[in-house]
């Protein structure tokens, strides 16, 4: 069916696309710049000749990165962290969102529980108490310190909770009539129906774990236990000049290798870049489905 489109509407669409395209480009350009740096020679980079296309093509930086033991160790820690952390995240999100999506009549005290969770989203004990709890529970310097404190992503719980509420109640009622218990209803009806939403949350969880660096720095007692982003942080930041003796400044200047740093940044971002297109179709559907109610 052909709908007649007014001229001004078409103009709006063009402008809209144009602006969004600009926005998209500004997001891609820094990535391209880093990629170009990583494939260029060190002297070209120092001279500032590289913008978006490599100058003096070389893969030396990548050979350096993949030959670097510490980098690979950190990469492996990150993979472990994502595997364990995301599993815990998803399991707990589902288990918490389901009961909380019920009415007060079905689950007395539901509101109190819900506020209990939201409270932790708004207030926290602060850095030092957080650190002391992790230390005193013996989690310090283990992979568990990186996954347990962030085991329940409240924001994700709220999204999923609302999604569950949008599912037709009749489905659950009929399942119950056929003799299903709460767990059967959850795993055989709610979870399969919520795949789009779950894929979205999965993406959030993966990206969140992959990108977080601060906890790794604070909670690891050995550099070998750093996840990748914490490791990257240590090679990218500059030393505070107040702590820098001239001798250290010399060492620093010697290690100033922007091409190698660019390569390490790019390799670290790569896994997420790969995951995105695969999850993206769920991503769009998931947000749309969650927003529409009868």
């Amino acid at each position: 069916m052909a709908v007649k489109v007014s001229k001004s509407y078409r103009l709006f669409t063009i402008m809209n696309n144009f602006l969004l395209l600009l926005l998209a480009i500004t997001c891609v350009l820094p990535m391209l710049h880093i990629l170009a740096l990583s494939f260029s020679s060190a002297s070209a980079v120092t001279a500032g000749e590289v913008t978006f296309w490599p100058v003096d093509w070389t893969t030396a930086a990548y050979e350096n990165v993949f030959g670097k033991k510490e980098y690979l160790v950190a990469f492996w820690v990150s993979i472990k962290r994502v595997a364990i952390g995301v599993t815990i995240n998803m399991l707990l999100t589902i288990l918490i969102a389901y009961p909380l999506s019920k009415e007060n009549s079905q689950f007395p005290g539901r509101t109190i529980y819900a506020w209990y969770f939201v409270f932790t989203m708004l207030f926290s004990g602060g850095l030092i108490p957080w650190y002391m709890i992790i230390k005193d529970t013996g989690l310090l310097d283990t992979i568990w310190a990186l996954v347990i404190p962030s085991a329940v992503p409240i924001f994700n719980v709220i999204i999923l909770l609302n999604f569950f509420r949008g599912l037709p109640k009749e489905l659950e009622e009929s399942a119950k009539l056929d003799g299903a218990g709460y767990f059967t209803v959850l795993w055989r009806i709610f979870v399969p129906l919520s795949m789009p939403a779950l894929a979205t949350l999965l993406l959030f969880a993966v990206v969140g774990h992959w990108n977080s660096w601060f906890d790794g720095l604070i909670l690891s007692n050995r550099t070998e236990h750093y996840p990748l982003q914490s490791f990257l942080q240590t090679i990218i930041i500059k030393l505070d000049p107040a702590y820098l003796t001239p001798k250290q400044a010399e060492l620093n200047a010697l290690m100033n290798n922007r091409t190698s740093r660019a390569a390490q940044i790019f390799v670290a971002a790569f896994p997420i870049l790969i995951i995105y297109p695969f999850l993206q179709r769920f991503f769009i559907k998931g947000i749309v489905l969650g927003s529409v109610k009868e």
């Binding site: 850095l127 030092i128 650190y131 002391m132 230390k135 310097d141 720095l217 604070i218 690891s220 007692n221 050995r222 550099t223 750093y226 490791f231 240590t234 930041i237 030393l239 505070d240 702590y243």
Partner: peptide, 20 residues
């Protein structure tokens, strides 16, 4: 070594150990 961190992170990690 009670802990070993990257030399650039030494002073921030130390601040936490002092606070704790």
């Amino acid at each position: 070594n009670n802990w070993v961190v990257d030399s650039k992170e030494y002073h921030s990690k130390l601040k936490i150990s002092i606070a704790a």
